[in-house]
Amino acid sequence: MDEIRVIEVKRSVFESNDREADRLRAELRQRGTFLLNLMSSPGSGKTTTLERTIEALSDELRIAVMEADIDSDVDTRRVLAKGVRAIQLHTGGMCHLDAGMTRQGIDELGTDDTDLAFLENVGNLVCPAEFDTGASANAMILSVPEGDDKPLKYPLMFQVCDVVLVNKMDVAPYFDFNLDRLRANVARRNERARVIPISAKTGEGMDDWYEWLREQVRAWQA
C-alpha cells in the first residue's frame, strides 16, 4: 500500500466548468453562433418573450432554441410551433445547466447555419448564475410582479447579466413597482448591465430588445 500523502490543491470547484465554458465559447465564435443564456424565475415570461422574438427576427436571423427544464417538453412544443429548430434538455432534477450539459445540447442541436441560439435555462435565480454555460452573453428576465428589490436579494444573478429585461410592464400600474428604483438596484450590483423595460404581451419596448440582439449578433460575427 502506498504511503498516504497530503496534497495542497487550492482549486476552485468551478475551475473545470469555467475551462469547458471558455472552450465552448471560442468554438461558438468560430462558427459565428451567438448563444444567449436566458435566465429568470419561473413564470416571468421567458417562453412568451422567446415566441415574440422568433416571430420578429426569424426573417433576418437564423434562430435555434434549447429549452432546459427539470422535466416535460411543454416549452419546446411552443417554440417548435414558431417554425425554428428546438430541442429539449432535461437536467434530471438539477437546478441549473453547466457547460458540459450546454455542449451536449449544442452538439445535438447543431449550429451549422445558426446566427442566434437561445438557451432557456431552468427557472431559478440562484444556481444558474453560478455556473458559466459557455454562452456568449447572459440575459435575465425580471417580471414586474416579482418586485424591484430582486437585485438586492439575488446579487449574483444581476452581477453576471449583460442585459436585464423587465417584463410585464403593461401591469406595472397595479403593482408597487418602481422602474427607477429597479435601475438603481441593478446599477449597484452591475454598472454594465443594460436594463430594457418590455411587455412581451403588448409589444412595448420589444424593438429595443430586438435591436440589442441584432447588435450583439453583429459584433459576435464580426
Binding site: 500500500m1 502506498d2 504511503e3 498516504i4 500523502r5 497530503v6 496534497i7 495542497e8 490543491v9 487550492k10 482549486r11 476552485s12 470547484v13 468551478f14 449574483l156 449597484r188
Partner: peptide, 20 residues
C-alpha cells in the same frame, strides 16, 4: 458608503486532499 465590494465569502475551493 455603498461603494463596496465583496472580498471573501463566495469561495468554493478544494484546499487539500489526503490520499495514496
Amino acid at each position: 458608503s455603498d461603494n463596496t465590494e465583496l472580498l471573501h465569502g463566495l469561495e468554493i475551493e478544494i484546499r487539500e486532499v489526503e490520499g495514496a
